[in-house]
Design a protein around this nucleic acid. Structure first.
Lengths: 253, 253
DNA sequence: CAGTGGTCTAGACCACCGG
DNA sequence: CGGTGGTCTAGACCACTGA
């Protein structure tokens, strides 16, 4: 029949709870404020702690909350806009950006990266680790893969420390004329290694940005950058990014 | 002391479980294959169902699995590359792309969008709903906000159906010379409305792409597109996207 | 209808942080 | 040390799918 579904739909408790909490965050809390602990909140709403947690998890996923073990749950500031693709192409690490060099080693790249680089099985590439810090917060951990053939000026046997070596790899890379680049963004979960750098627990949701750099008619380098999904909004394109003036004003309780 | 942390770290069960399952997916299952049900799997690994589910949730988040109520859990195909930003700028809906027009109405935009459009409080804009289908699968639901001032050729009182009206809004928009565009990507969870269009449950993880279109020295339109995070890899830049040849070959069990 | 994944409960213990 | 969030259990019932 053409009945228009009279909606007996019982909304899940955690979903309703999320909505209620979300509105409370807008109207009764200010950024940085600490929420009551999970056991109290659950009791207050008359649900099991697991159900309450399901609602909090979603709000954290949406960047509204920040939870830290041993500390508590706080109201998160609006997400930071982080530029990851600019119209004017640029090699990584150029100019005054916010990357901090960490390390460099020769290694065989993971299979997925090897496929992009079209490198031979087992071929070694320079693997530069960096981390990106914005407004004092770690926002991304990156692995940059550079085949030795892209930076012929370097000797493979290099006794300098990892950091110095990383610096010279980037410097050599910038000698090449960059012909283009493209990126892909997908959702992932933080590996244990990245999680530590990002100050999150393993498995935390992250945005994985894979960028190919083209020079001399081929893929000269590949970057795999892991951004915190809870605190970051990735911006691409002409301008510096979109400033979102979001919803009602946040006032203190 | 300088002890190098002998790592008593007890890895969470669900994390270990996820690793085991992930390897099993690579070696013993092929795309589309149905996994044993959750109760059986939990029993087989000697954990509670909730713990098993925590592992499955992560694998689904990473696009490795697909779960559907009443059906079962299947091995997901690799994520689709979906182009969302091209070097050559283009108005939305131009040429032979995969968007399906759905609807159009005049409405006051949400606060966040109003801020971007710099529109006056309460000003009405054309709101075009579209959905994007790739390889037979719904991948995105979009709301396109077009201030009436961007499409002066249209009469505000229009008796035609929503779809026809949507078409004419896009046609009028394409008359303008596009001067630039930029996008932002962030993680969100599907609103009930979008979830239905994307064939997912409410709250499912999505990638929200906010795009500004510039013309005549101002922001002429804003698009807010909601992509399925589990099945999509968003691509930006010169080329058609990165084809990932991922890990070991998948073979049937 | 039987079987699936989705929701929910009421507990327990653990890892971590700060005072 | 006490308090926080993180993990885990063993159940129960519900909503949906397909035969």
């Amino acid at each position: 029949m053409g009945t228009t579904q009279l909606e007996t739909v019982p909304e899940p408790k955690y979903w309703h709870l999320k909505t209620v909490l979300s509105e409370a965050l807008d109207s009764e809390f200010s950024v940085g404020e600490i929420l009551p602990n999970e056991r109290d909140l659950a009791a207050r709403f008359g649900v099991a702690r697991a159900t309450l947690r399901q609602a909090l998890e979603q709000l954290e996923l949406e960047g509204r909350l920040q939870r830290r073990r041993g500390v508590g749950t706080t109201v998160a500031p609006p997400r930071m806009g982080v530029a990851v693709g600019t119209e004017q192409r640029a090699w990584p690490g150029v100019a005054g950006d916010t990357w901090q060099l960490a390390d460099c080693a020769m290694a065989a790249p993971p299979a997925a990266v090897a496929g992009i680089l079209e490198s031979l099985q087992g071929e070694q590439v320079y693997t530069v680790r960096r981390s990106r810090v914005t407004r004092g917060q770690p926002v991304a951990a990156e692995l940059l893969y550079v085949p030795a053939s892209s930076v012929p000026g370097l000797s493979a046997v290099d006794t300098r420390s990892g950091t110095a070596r990383a610096r010279s790899v980037l410097r050599e890379l910038q000698r090449l004329e960059l012909e283009g680049q493209d990126s892909a963004v997908e959702l992932g979960s933080a590996r244990a290694e990245d999680a530590k750098e990002l100050d999150r627990l393993p498995g935390a949701p992250v945005l994985v940005v894979t960028t190919r750099f083209f020079a001399e008619g081929r893929t000269a380098a590949v970057s795999v950058a892991t951004y915190r999904a809870d605190t970051c909004r990735l911006t691409f394109g002409d301008s510096g990014g979109i400033e979102i003036h979001d919803g009602p004003e946040r006032r203190a309780s």
